[in-house]
Design a protein around this nucleic acid. Structure first.
Lengths: 109, 109
DNA sequence: ACTTACCGTAAGCAACCACTTACTATAAGT
DNA sequence: ACTTATAGTAAGTGGTTGCTTACGGTAAGT
C-alpha cells in the first residue's frame, strides 16, 4: 500500500523553503548554479548542497557543458510524483465520500 | 506569482516521514489519537505534536466529542494544495515544451 | 603558462526539530 | 467520589540539518 516511501525524498526536499524557491526558479527554465544563487540570501556552496538534495529526489536534473552545470526540472520525476499524488488525493476523497454516505445511512436507521 | 508560501506549511508538514504516515492513515478514514499512535514507534505525545503541525498546515481537521479527539483529512485544504500543485506542474511542463521547441528552431537556423 | 570563471566537497558550527518523560485537565465509567 | 481513559502542554535533550568558510579541481580565456 504505502508507496510514499519511494517519494519520501521528494517530499523532504520540497519541505525546505529555500529548495522550493530553487525549484520554482527552475520551473521557469534551466539555469546554471550562479544564476540560481543570484538573489538568494545564501552562499553559492549552500545552493550546491540544495541542488544535490533536489537531484537525489529526482526533482531536477543536471547537465554539464564545460565548467558550467545546467540544472532543469526533471520531467519524469515530477510526473511520477504528480501521478502518485493524484491517486492519493482521489483515494482520500473517495473514502471521505463513502464515510459520509455511511453516516447518512446510519442517520436514517 | 509565487503562491507557494501559502502552502509552505503543508510542504513542510509532509516533509516528515512520521507525519506522512499519519496523513496516509487518516486518508483511509477518521481516527482518534490512540488509534493513530497505535503501530507507530513513537509515544502518544509525539503524535499529538505531529497532529498539531498537520492541523496548522490545514491538511487535517479535529473534532472533539467527549474526551476523544477525532482527526480526519481536511478536504478543503487538500483540494487547495492539489489545485496549486496542478497549476505548478502544468506551468513547469509548458515551459519545458516551449524551450524544447525553441531549441528545435535554433537548430534549423 | 597563467589567470579567471565555475562548481563541488570538507569540516565545523549554530539553530532547529522530533522525541521523551513528566504533568495537567476533562469526561466517562463504576 | 474514585478510578480510568483520553489527550494536550511543558521542559529538556540528542540528533539532524542548513549554513559558512576554506579548499580542490576542471575548463575557458588571454
Amino acid at each position: 500500500m504505502s508507496k510514499t516511501s519511494s517519494h519520501a525524498a521528494a517530499f523532504n526536499a520540497l519541505g525546505d523553503p529555500t529548495r522550493r524557491s530553487i525549484f520554482e526558479k527552475l520551473a521557469n527554465g534551466p539555469l546554471s548554479v550562479v544564476h540560481i544563487a543570484d538573489g538568494l540570501p545564501i552562499s553559492r556552496p549552500a545552493v550546491s548542497q540544495h541542488l544535490k538534495v533536489l537531484r537525489e529526489a529526482k526533482l531536477i536534473t543536471m547537465e554539464q557543458s564545460g565548467t558550467r552545470s545546467m540544472y532543469r526540472i526533471d520531467r519524469d520525476g515530477v510526473r511520477s510524483l504528480r501521478d502518485y499524488l493524484d491517486k492519493f488525493w482521489d483515494q482520500a476523497l473517495l473514502n471521505f465520500k463513502e464515510l459520509a454516505e455511511q453516516a447518512e445511512k446510519q442517520k436514517k436507521k
